[in-house]
Amino acid sequence: MTATAAGTSAASAASVRSRPVLAWGLAAAGAALVAAALLSIAVGSKSIPVGTVLDALLHYDARIDDHVVIRDLRLPRTLLGLVVGAALGLAGALIQALTRNPLADPGILGINEGAGLGVLVAIGIVGLTSPWAYVWFAFAGAAASAALVYAIGARGREGASPVRLVLAGIAFTYVLHAIGRAILLTDSTTFDRWRNWVVGSLASADPGVIVSVLPFAAVGAAVALGLTPSLNALALGEEAGQALGVHRGRTRALGAVAVTLLCGSATAAAGPIAFVGLMVPYAARMITGPDYRWLVPYSLVLAPILLLVADVVGRVVTRPSEVGVGVVTAVVGAPLLIALVRRRGRLPRL
């Protein structure tokens, strides 16, 4: 019970915030998201004034070059950032709740790498080219690696402790990454097509890919949002959750399905991106406290902001070439991982 006591004392500061405050905060985050999206459309190798951006969105004119750039390049890329960011943020919040592990992140745990390997197998070995077809391989890869990492991490005496789970994910990622490398190196056409994609990038935004992953991501998001009340009960621990009438098995199974759909579609569209699912729920928890009914929506809104801003930074920092968005999120996210691991004493349980 000491863990719960520590949790409530840590949360007490946050729980002072009342519902209206949290609701207004969510609205402010939504406004920030709109601003980030406009920024992502405006900034690039050719900067376009925000006025022109709004103009192009509201009164599109194919004769104006800037409008064409916005419609054909910047808009798909920004939409992709929105979808991928939201999916990764939700998946991170969900997986932290399910494993009760503040270090959990679909990238660190190897789930995104598994989905990525699934796509590589689909393209490089099976020879699929349509995103409708290979997104299923991404789901299979994500589900298989999630199950395997959890099975490896849960072995041994102390069970799936936060650190063991992360370690299992790290080891598993090494293997998956090496297998992926081997596939890429044996097949130069696959290598050429997916060189940029492997590092996690929004640059190759293709409307077809966005359209084909969107339904899956939407279903995953709906399941995740529907689960939030049960997540609170799950966070209280096994006995308390059961006493409150939550089916642990069902919650976990649905959560795993949602994580698979979200990570699979995000990775199929943009490649493996780590640390977003670590950072965003962490930041959201600082605002909302441990209540998942607020934490999950906040993650949903904050994650795309992070991803879009990271993508803009990646575009600007090495102009005229670009750095993938996954690289930028690693620069911000890795120090947070270090800080969390360095925390005094045991890691806080969720």
């Binding site: 270090l103 660190i108 650190v163 063991r164 992360v166 370690l167 790290i170 780590a274 640390f275 750095v323 690289v327 930028v328 690693a330 620069v331 996210g333 890795a334 120090p335 991982l337 270090i338 691991v341 360095r342």
Partner: peptide
């Protein structure tokens, strides 16, 4: 274990 995780985090930074 902390050594490994911090090592991986620093590696992620250096990879960037």
């Amino acid at each position: 274990y902390r050594l490994v995780i911090i090592g991986v985090a620093v590696q992620a930074l250096l990879t960037a």
